[in-house]
Write a protein that binds this DNA or RNA. Structure first.
Lengths: 240, 240
DNA sequence: ATCACTTATTGTACAAAATACAATAAGTAT
DNA sequence: ATACTTATTGTATTTTGTACAATAAGTGAT
């Protein structure tokens, strides 16, 4: 019966893949943080890496709450779309020598295993104001096509998030989350094209999207543009 | 900087929703264990509940390995289909009074939070031999239509597993996992009907399934049946 | 050999959805 | 009036989904 009182405690963290859409450049980007070193006087010894934002969970918060807190701390925005998508728990996932430095400044037991629950968040880059928080030296948006080498297994985590959203953009409310409240069908199409990384036919796109039960036509058109003004659309509130 | 050495350790477990297919009765069932009490002499004080099989993870195993171990211990079969599908981490998920008894016999700190990574497994009931292991008093198959009240939040976990498999049976290799190596199209159709809980048209089912790139026609028919013998089919090996 | 019985197998008409493809419309600026 | 730019729309074709019932191939009984 000695197994009855096994006590394999583990660190549990939540990591967030924050995908941001830059409408002007029509690019999808991922939010990275540059790791903060230890006390300033020792900073020269510390080689910061880029990472996705994450933190250990707190005693009294759920996983969803932890993800929301991490994002709030970092991007100063509440109520973003957030979705758990996978949990990464390989025993060696934080044991690469490249990560030892950072862990030694942040953990009582730097070699302890960390299991991380990964979340996907969608944000409009122009609407949020990410700020380097207590756990980030600075933050950076990077194109999903040029993601640098990241700390821990974060490249794997980001790749899995991208797979998921590309397979089913509509299930992840991309339009609602990544566009302004009112938008044109061309804007919506551009977004889908970036996410799926392929061109779509205008006529066919409009035919299919107009079956979307949440899309509504507004009583408003573009003004002052140097071409035929486009109709504005919006999304209906979600049924709860 | 006091946050630097936060030490919120947590128990992490893996729970498995084992769905078994009984071809004869054409039923989908879920594998439950009846919780084992403390030492025999105190057993009369212990009110066992049904639960899905699960265990704390071990120090040196990945989540996938933990899931495989739990199943192996319980059903004595290796190499089953196993898929992580969600992680449940509400702070109170093991704090219902109904669960206090069992936890007090198994945990140094019975009130400690447990985060659990849930896996889905698919098995053919006639092919495996579940046995009560060190953590199960006995095991039981229960129809997915009549699942009793379970320990912890296990009813929620089972419900989520069922949602997932019903939405996309083909993505979860249902046929490959739940049928014999050679099978008839009627067998395959029966399985899909049980999983999706609706009747399918024979002609339409065959039309759609025959597009499946993994389905191959064998050089063999049923023998000795009291009706027109059916063609046997099989699944091609998966590309890795 | 015929027949009764049982399950396996197949086709066709129709509707709906996906795809390929280009001309016209509505503004602004000159 | 014209040039320019992006918005908007339709049609033919293919593919996929759906509804629906007659024939085929065995066995066992006569």
């Amino acid at each position: 019966m000695k197994d009855n009182f096994l006590n394999y405690n583990n660190y549990v963290s939540v990591d967030c893949v924050v995908l941001g859409y830059n409408e002007v450049e029509n690019k999808l980007q991922v939010l990275l943080i540059k790791q903060k070193g230890p006390a300033p006087n020792t900073a020269e010894l510390f080689k910061p890496q880029y990472a996705i934002p994450g933190d250990l969970i707190k005693e009294d918060e759920s996983l969803d709450e932890a993800a929301a807190r991490i994002l709030e701390d970092l991007v100063n925005v509440k109520g973003l779309f957030l979705e758990q998508f996978y949990t990464f728990g390989h025993p060696d996932r934080v044991k690469d020598p490249k990560d030892a430095d950072w862990l030694s400044t942040r953990r009582k037991d730097p070699l302890a295993r960390v299991i991380t629950v990964a979340y996907l968040a969608l944000v409009r880059i122009d609407q949020i104001n990410p700020s380097a928080g207590y756990f980030a030296e600075q933050i950076a948006w990077r194109s999903i096509k040029k993601i640098p080498k990241l700390a821990f297994d974060h490249n794997t985590i980001v790749a899995k998030a991208l797979d998921i959203i590309q397979a089913h953009p509509e299930q992840h409310l991309v339009g609602r989350e990544l566009l302004p409240n009112k938008f044109t069908l061309s804007q919506l199409q551009n977004l889908y094209e970036v996410i799926q990384n392929k061109e779509l036919d205008k006529r066919n796109f409009r035919k299919s999207i107009k079956n979307n039960e949440y899309l509504i036509t507004l009583n408003e058109k573009q003004k002052g543009v140097l071409h035929k003004p486009a109709q504005y659309y919006a999304f209906k509130k979600l049924k709860k």
